[in-house]
């Protein structure tokens, strides 16, 4: 049994009277690649945003190495450097070049000297195949390239866990592959990842763990073989059937 990294306990989130997440419980161990699947509006993204504290949970606990980060008074900034996030819409800083995007967090938040930050940024940009584009501005590169830079930006902070919020949903079909390849490499190197995705092939082949969410609750979870191959619940079966039917 490997080390527990994240533990979500009884997490609930409401926007006004609308309850988006209800009593979510699950754990992430070191090296896990957890794919969160489910229909739109099932609360997948909200769950991920709660874990990163971009949304404040209404109730419940998020334990990071045993420490409740959702409690009042904890500093979210230090925690967020340990838990990186990659967004559907990339969210690269438009006023900076590719290289600056990957450096700014290191120099401002981690207070690394700039030559060290530069070397780290270049290392990860190289890894995602974006090293030749370090002088480009985000508006000058394609969606798939932006997302790869966003992954490099998150990696440069040296996170323990990476959260991916539908990283390929905003991309043209032919660019999905380049981003998934990068993610697959990360998974192979043992990065702990939590991926909200509609890419069933990725969930099946890369993830170690699949969580199916339906209407704000975790409906079914287990290994990809269990959830995708032999789903027990009717909702999961219907969802997967709808996906295959497409």
């Amino acid at each position: 049994m490997s080390e527990l990294v994240l533990e979500v306990r009884h997490l609930s989130k409401s926007f006004g009277s609308n309850e988006v997440l209800r009593d979510i419980d699950f754990t992430v161990s070191k090296g896990d690649v957890t794919a969160i699947i489910g229909a739109s509006g099932s609360g997948k993204s909200t769950l991920l945003r709660c874990i990163n504290l971009l949304e404040t949970p209404t109730s419940g606990e998020i334990l990071f190495h045993g420490q409740n980060v959702a409690a009042r008074g904890t500093d979210p900034c230090a925690y967020r450097t340990k838990v990186g996030m990659v967004f559907q819409s990339f969210n690269l800083f438009n006023n900076m070049t590719v290289l600056q995007n990957c450096m700014v967090g290191q120099t401002k938040v981690l207070r690394r000297p700039s030559d060290e930050a530069r070397a780290t940024a270049l290392h990860y940009l190289e890894k995602v195949g974006m090293a030749p584009y370090i002088n480009a501005k985000p508006r000058q590169i394609s969606g798939g390239q932006k997302q790869r830079v966003a992954i490099a930006r998150a990696l440069a902070m040296g996170p323990e866990v990476l959260l991916f919020d539908e990283p390929t949903s905003a991309l043209d079909p032919e660019m999905v592959g380049e981003v998934l390849t990068v993610m697959q490499d990360l998974a192979r190197e043992g990065m702990t990842m939590l991926v909200v995705t509609h890419e069933m092939a990725f969930a099946r082949d890369v993830s170690t763990h699949v969580v199916y969410m339906n209407q704000g609750v975790i409906c079914e979870e287990g290994t990809p073989e269990q959830v995708l191959g032999n789903p027990q619940k009717k909702e999961t079966q219907d969802f997967l059937a709808r996906f295959r039917g497409q």
């Binding site: 967020r80 800083f93 938040v109």
Partner: peptide, 18 residues
């Protein structure tokens, strides 16, 4: 400015001031 810019900054641990 697109709220995504703020979220991107927050996600790498920046404070509001940064």
């Amino acid at each position: 400015i697109d709220p995504g810019q703020t979220e991107g900054a927050k996600a790498i641990g920046m404070t509001h001031f940064q």
